[in-house]
Simulated assay, not measured.
Amino acid sequence: MQLTLGPLLYYWPKQQVLDFYAQAADWPVASIYLGEVVCARRHELRTADWLALGSELAQSGKQIIYSSQAVLESGSDLSSLRKLAQAGGVLEANDLGAIRIAREAGIAYVAGPHLNIYNGPALDWHINAGATRWVAPLEASANTVAAILSEKTAEIETEIFAHGRLPLAFSARCFTARHFDLSKDACEFKCIEHADGMLLKTREGKEFLRINGIQTQSAACYALINDVAKMQNIDYLRISPQAEYTPEIIDAYSTQINTQQQNADWAQFNPEGLVNGYWHGQAGIQSTQEAL
Rank of each mutant, 00 (worst) to 15 (best):
A131H: 05
Q23I: 05
G164P: 07
R82E: 01
I214W: 00
P7F: 00
H179G: 06
F20K: 11
H114E: 12
Y278D: 07
S171H: 09
S80L: 08
Q232C: 06
T259M: 14
P167I: 14
Q232G: 03
G277S: 12
P7Q: 01
I250A: 00
R42C: 13
A24V: 08
A70V: 10
Y109Q: 02
T4E: 08
T132I: 15
D181R: 09
L57S: 07
S80A: 15
A291S: 14
A243S: 11
G97P: 02
Q69R: 11
Q63H: 14
S171W: 12
Q286S: 13
A30H: 14
K62D: 06
Y118K: 06
G120M: 00
G54T: 03
L18P: 03
G213S: 03
Y118S: 06
G213W: 04
H43Y: 14
D227A: 09
R203Y: 11
L224E: 01
Q260N: 15
K206M: 13
T153R: 15
L138R: 10
A30S: 14
Q286A: 15
N116S: 12
T153G: 13
A22G: 08
Q59F: 14
A195C: 08
E73W: 11
S218K: 05
A122H: 12
A154M: 10
D26V: 13
D95F: 01
N258K: 10
A136W: 07
I225R: 04
H179K: 14
